[in-house]
Design a binder for these strands. Structure first.
Lengths: 415, 415
DNA sequence: GACGTTTGTCGGCGAAGATGACAAACTAGG
DNA sequence: CCTAGTTTGTCATCTTCGCCGACAAACGTC
């Protein structure tokens, strides 16, 4: 540093990026492919209207995508309106796929997702809690991937690999910092899985709640919403934030750990080392304990509790009411911080919400600023347990959608 | 709606925007102007290096900006290195300005800020708390603006008008939803000020804490940081969030109301109607009360308290310690939610922090996840009370910086 | 003062979208 | 069944804008 003059130092930091003319083509190809991926098949004339480009430009662009086998054009079904029918362009789902992986607490899912977001094949395997060593996990994933790959079209290309993990994931290097439920600590998961799969495609890793949020925004209940708070809770509580349509990742990708917001500073100790974290009040354990059950009862115990609630058993109703209060308190705080237009509840919280809707809403009304909650909708997750898988695929497709031909070239080169 | 066929309905929603060739020029002009605005004067060759464009392209682009009188080229001072010296391009600050307004609790500031971010002229007037009616405020602003305008170059153009207000501001229509400290409720402030100033330029309004955060990120301690949590506290507590370099506004612009996160559900009632909001624990009133003073003591009482602390008076130290604990608790929660790389403390909190640094940091260490706080820095605001003004100017410049020539055309047309 | 280096300038080139004319493919009405 | 009207794909030509390469200008060094 000392030998570099200040003027030179400024040189070394290319802050802004100019637009060259080749960027234009790439951007427009990306625009069209994204349009088809997110909003489904569209006729050329629809693409003209949505993009603002001319018929000739759209024609050339779609043609290029067709030549690259990313898009296929079909004869339009005449819809009754006058004029020459416009051929419909659709993403080629079965020859352009992403491999999506979801490493959950006690199960593991792998999906092959086609361009456009269709799950072509998927397989979820339950795993005994003991078998969560990193190597064993990677072996399991590779085995399932190979099995699914055999069912694919030989001409099928894998455009990306995305993984969701229950734990804190460092997005800068695709490593898992801590996954308490798996017992992992500082694992270079992305790199290791990539080596095990023997591929040159980067394996992108993210937190599973973040991916579930992404999935709900792209293809679930929150489709079209630009500012969303996704709250996912089972044993632990995680969250995904979306602001202005983009996921909020934070500096290193750890944003969204809303389960550890202090809501009750003199409450119970949390496994994270703090006290009174939100998840100590609304996690599965707290709910079960309040209903007089063992906090480790798991899914069966929750089922029993909800069955009790259906029958009107007072203790069960009481436990749900307390849960609801804390749920509302936490959501209200996050509404004030983020001013979302929609709150999506997933996992256990999604199951509980219908029972305690009134109470949760009341707490939100009391504690969230009137302006911030105006127009707000609280809904239950639509994609359920598939959400992280769908989100992982979206993450994996990101690169192709940003630069279709460039990414394709890179993939074919590295074969 | 009923007469519109589904196919037509799809037409009416232009979701994606294509890039036309004229967009390229506009984007590149914007890139250069932003570079000069944010990072100061730069030689052409520096611009070449940073943008990745060629010498000829930069030459034409800078030339166009010079012709538009947005940029001026000066002979380079030869810096000792061999080769032909490159002329230095600089933003023309004194003929391209934004008018920035800060409507604070008991004062009102107006600034004329030149392109590049220099405050050319500014005036802050203290206002008795009684005189906060909307019309009176607008009259005051107009008077100061006219006074400052007389000192400007006759050729000077006003490129934007930005206003920061202590209160909840709806960014979609530049209206103030609620400003408890001013007694305002649903005021179309932007539109009314625009009419009073008799201008066709849109008056952009935002929350003052959001603007202070923007200012710190663009020109203060957080320059270069991409994920920042700004916490501003006096009587109330507000905040500004920046994620991936962009301000987080939320659905309607109300994001960042971190003063009303519930941290102590069984605590004191808050003026917002809730109980145990963060600001009831770390606001000025709570601090003064804990030190045995009247909560309404204001700035003088705070000065006295800090003087006591300097002398080691136990009651003062105790009050600060309690404040520090709650400050740390709240910050820790927000760190878990947002994973910022920097936390900036402004206002009273910035004054208090040096006294209680250890305690606040300890609480953060205890309650924020290790991963999320790794590499985190907590600092005190650099711009002080000027921050909202600087931020308002940045907001006002946004439009010109996004499309220089287009905006200029629009402004000159509307004369 | 000659030489090497860096940079501005200018003419020509190529990529990509716009324009406009024309043909193709559909509906509606007689 | 045929014609008019409408919408859309295609193609040749034009325009914009950045790139490339050659050359000249302005600096430091020996």
């Amino acid at each position: 540093m000392s030998t570099v003059s200040p003027a030179r130092a400024a040189f070394s930091s290319p802050t802004a990026t100019g637009v060259r003319s080749e960027t234009v083509r790439s951007a427009n190809l990306a625009t069209i492919l994204r349009e088809l991926h997110f909003h489904g098949p569209a006729s050329r004339s629809e693409l003209v209207a949505r993009s603002g480009l001319t018929r000739s430009a759209i024609g050339a662009l779609v043609g290029e995508l067709v030549k690259a086998d990313l898009v296929i054009e079909q004869r339009a079904a005449s819809d009754g309106s006058p004029g020459r029918p416009s051929p419909v362009a659709a993403p080629v789902a079965d020859r352009n796929v992403a491999i999506a992986v979801d490493v959950a607490v006690d199960s593991l899912a792998v999906g092959v997702v086609g361009l456009g977001g269709v799950i072509l094949h998927s397989e979820r395997i339950d795993r005994p809690r003991e078998r969560v060593a990193v190597d064993a996990t990677i072996d399991d994933i590779v085995a399932v991937v190979r099995r699914l790959q055999r069912r694919l079209d030989p001409a099928c290309r894998v455009l990306g690999i995305g993984v969701g993990v229950v734990g804190l994931v460092n997005r800068t290097d695709n490593s898992v910092s801590i996954a308490p439920n798996l017992g992992w600590h500082d694992v270079a998961f992305g790199a290791r899985l990539q080596r095990a799969l023997d591929t040159t495609i980067e394996v992108v890793v993210s937190n599973d709640a973040d991916l579930a949020a992404l999935a709900e925004v792209r293809r679930g209940v929150a489709a079209g919403q630009r500012d969303v708070l996704y709250v996912w809770g089972e044993v632990g509580v995680g969250g995904g934030l979306v602001s202005a349509g983009e996921p909020v990742t934070g500096a290193a990708g750890f944003a969204g750990e809303i389960g550890h917001v202090p809501v009750n500073p003199d409450g119970r100790p949390c496994r994270c080392g703090s006290v009174g974290c939100w998840e100590t009040e609304i996690g599965e354990g707290a709910l079960l304990e309040r209903s007089g059950r063992s906090p480790d009862g798991g899914r069966d115990a929750v089922d029993a509790l909800l069955a009790d609630a259906d029958r009107g058993v007072p203790l069960a109703l009481e436990a749900l009411a307390v849960q609801a209060r804390w749920l509302g308190i936490g959501i209200a705080g996050l509404i004030n911080v983020l001013n979302p237009s929609m709150v999506v509840l997933g996992g256990l919280l999604g199951r509980v919400y219908p029972y305690v809707r009134v109470r949760v809403d009341a707490e939100i009304e009391r504690r969230a600023l009137e302006s911030s909650r105006r127009g707000l909708v609280v809904v239950v997750s639509a994609l359920g347990s598939d959400a992280p898988l769908v989100g992982a695929a979206e993450l994996a497709f990101e690169q192709v959608l940003a630069d279709p031909l460039g990414t394709l070239r890179k993939i074919s080169m590295s074969r």
